[in-house]
């Protein structure tokens, strides 16, 4: 049995949006400490890796490791039915062939007198985040505020079932790597650079020197260059540009893939680029304290 409830269901919506243009089918691997996804695009040029730690969920139960094969387009269609404020619970049986997705509207949506249920829920051993637990909490809050009566929220609740599939996914063993360059910058700024550079050409060079990070493109229309300098003391954390460099690195990449990666921009204010000479770049979007989505992209190399 696998069951996980994410209060901020929007994260799941955005995650699937951020990978569905790159991979069509993938496995959600569930263990007792995280859910993860690793999948390559069809051409094996890029890879997406997602990790959501169990601690980031308000209820998480995974009795034994499970691989849930899903079609990303279909899951995206179902997740579009969830509101941005909805909590999302994922459920799967150990030997089932479907993934149940429960969407619950925000608590204040509907309020009704439903006393018996709430009293029954008091003192129960329901798991945290379950419907009964929520009822107990809300009951408690109202009782504290008003001193009398019991009010319980009836959730705005939708249940969808997604058919699962058997997927033989090719898993890459990616070793822990110390990168020569780590750049942290606002995710929105990175998105804008990628979008603008695509107007001029297909191949982006990213060059990191002590001067800063230079993004450059050459095409038939002309050339474009953007220099980003370290700005570690910006007022807001998310506006900071931080560059850690052991040695200068210059690599070139297909803009088409970098553009797919920027679909994850809404997941967080910051993007982290990791680079070393002649190895794939890692483009990481941290997701609060919950986890991350990382993209790996093989470089283009002069022969």
């Amino acid at each position: 049995m696998f069951e996980a409830r994410l209060t901020s269901g929007k994260i799941l919506k955005q995650l699937i949006e951020a990978l569905k243009d790159l991979v069509q089918e993938a496995n959600i691997d569930c263990s007792d400490d995280e859910i993860s996804i690793q999948a390559m695009d069809n051409s094996h040029v890029s890879l997406v890796a997602v990790s959501l730690r169990s601690g980031g969920f308000d209820h998480f139960r995974c009795d034994r490791p499970l691989s849930l094969g899903f079609n990303a387009t279909n899951m995206g269609k179902i997740l579009k039915c969830a509101g941005n404020e909805d909590a999302i619970t994922l459920k799967a049986e150990d030997d089932g062939d479907s993934l149940s997705m429960v969407f619950e509207g925000p608590n204040q949506d509907r309020i009704a007198d439903f006393g018996e249920f709430a009293r029954g829920a008091r003192g129960s051993d329901s798991p945290p985040g379950s419907r009964r637990e929520k009822c107990w909490k809300i009951d408690f809050n109202f009782a504290t505020m008003r001193g009398v009566g019991v009010l319980v929220v009836i959730f705005d609740r939708k249940i969808y079932e997604l058919k699962l599939m058997d997927i033989d996914s090719e898993q890459l063993g990616i070793p822990d790597t110390d990168y020569k360059v780590t750049i942290q910058m606002p995710s929105g700024e990175f998105q804008r650079i990628i979008r603008d550079m695509q107007v001029l050409g297909d191949t982006l060079s990213i060059s990191c020197t002590k001067e800063g990070v230079k993004f450059g493109v050459q095409g038939d229309l002309g050339t474009g260059n953007v220099l980003i300098r370290q700005n570690a003391h910006a007022e807001k954390d998310e506006d900071r540009v931080m560059i850690e460099m052991e040695e200068p690195v210059e690599l070139t990449f297909a803009l088409r893939y970098l553009n797919f990666f920027t679909k994850a921009t809404n997941l967080g204010p910051t993007v982290i680029l990791n680079m070393s000479p002649d190895v794939p770049i890692v483009v990481e979007y941290p997701i609060g304290e919950t986890g991350h989505i990382k993209y790996y992209l093989a470089p283009k190399i002069d022969e």
């Binding site: 040029v45 794939p280 093989a298 002069d302």
Partner: peptide, 14 residues
């Protein structure tokens, strides 16, 4: 033009 490599050049399939 530089050549586009795949990730299989850099990482092993498990």
């Amino acid at each position: 033009d530089p050549r586009q490599y795949t990730l299989l050049k850099f990482y092993e399939l498990n």
